[in-house]
Design a protein around this nucleic acid. Structure first.
Lengths: 200, 200
DNA sequence: CTGGATTTTCAGAATTTTCTGAAATAACAG
DNA sequence: CTGTTATTTCAGAAAATTCTGAAAATCCAG
């Protein structure tokens, strides 16, 4: 491994975290190098920077492309493939959430829907299905909320995040003017419902 | 493995997903069994249900306790240890987010803070540090937002999630009455700032 | 104490994942 | 075409993780 100390420290950390994040060490390190580079990076650079076999770098690049976290970027006068990360940090966050949702949540949602269609054959199964229903409801609520939020432009998103829990104060305050008219949640207070169709 | 078909299907799915979720198959299956059970579950039950060695069950239980996803629950007239999951599904979600944040984000935040203290020794390092700064900023914003949100009671949280992006409409609308008075984010519009102290 | 029931620990086996080096394939300039 | 450069594939090696069975430790009733 052949990198300036500051960069190397970050790259090594990403390697260590890799397994916790569901990628492997090499994938983590390769991503870190590309993320920190101020120019497109090619496989040779990565072999040099990370110090693993070229074939391993190739695998890592394939994996990162399957996550859509890196893109090919051709460099003038070069035959080799060069890569860059998504330019905007918020685009990266959105992609990460999207992909992890796809890999870690969607399959379970599918299974839950299947199993909730079946009729329980015993009290034991009936109770189990009740639990599955709870889980399904929570996942639907959370992913539905995110589907809504992800469509916001970044500026708006940052605004919302900056507000934090103050948003609730805002809601309180609104409730004082517009008395509850119902909504899609279970609670008795909600928005006035003029901002688009209900979710499924 | 010895379970009713509906339950078995769910348990097997949790086992398969385990590796994507950063736990192993047995831990996933053991959790699923306890989650779906309508009574506290002991190690013997789990050996029977999941069909792995008792020692493996013991490891899985330890792991799940380290996540604080299961609790010991003594059963009248039994010497053996029985376990239950957190009762409320929202408590489970909160715990999951808390733990994954602790394991997957906090270590990186620490490293970022360390590396951002150092002075870059080259243009390459200066640029890298800029990227680290972006990453640090995003993580702080997201985790700060969550710290705020997690304090809400569940009813309020569900209300907020149900609103989805409508919340933004509400903000728009508020802005029309109260012209921007600043806030903690970068954006020019924010809450009225009467909901507690600013975050660091 | 003692003895049985239960849980925990841990060394090594089994399995899975990651990594390598070599060969195959592809891309392209001349 | 042909030769060179670059990328991909893949079988097996290496490493890491998971799992087991046996032994040790713990717990508790009598």
């Amino acid at each position: 491994m052949n990198l300036p100390p500051l960069i190397q420290a970050f790259v090594l950390h990403f390697g260590e975290m890799g397994s916790r994040w569901g990628i492997n060490r090499t994938v983590g390190q390769v991503y870190a190098v590309i993320f920190l580079a101020n120019r497109p990076v090619c496989a040779d650079d990565l072999v040099d920077a990370v110090g693993v076999a070229r074939s391993n770098v190739a695998m890592a690049l394939k994996e990162l492309q399957s996550w859509e976290l890196i893109r090919l970027k051709h460099v003038a006068g070069e035959r080799r493939d060069f890569y860059v990360t998504l330019d905007d940090i918020w685009a990266i966050v959105r992609k990460l959430v999207e992909q992890r949702k796809r890999r870690e949540i969607d399959p379970t949602l599918t299974v839950l829907r299947e199993l909730l269609m079946q009729s329980p054959a015993s009290e034991e199964e009936r109770f189990a299905q009740e639990r599955m229903q709870e889980m399904h409801g929570v996942i639907e609520l959370l992913t539905g909320w995110y589907d809504d939020i992800e469509r916001l432009e970044t500026e708006r998103l940052v605004q919302l995040l900056s507000l934090g829990a103050k948003i609730v104060k805002a809601l309180d305050w609104k409730d004082k003017l517009f008395v509850a008219k119902g909504g899609r949640g279970k609670s008795k207070t909600s928005g006035e419902g003029d901002a688009g169709p209900e979710r499924s």
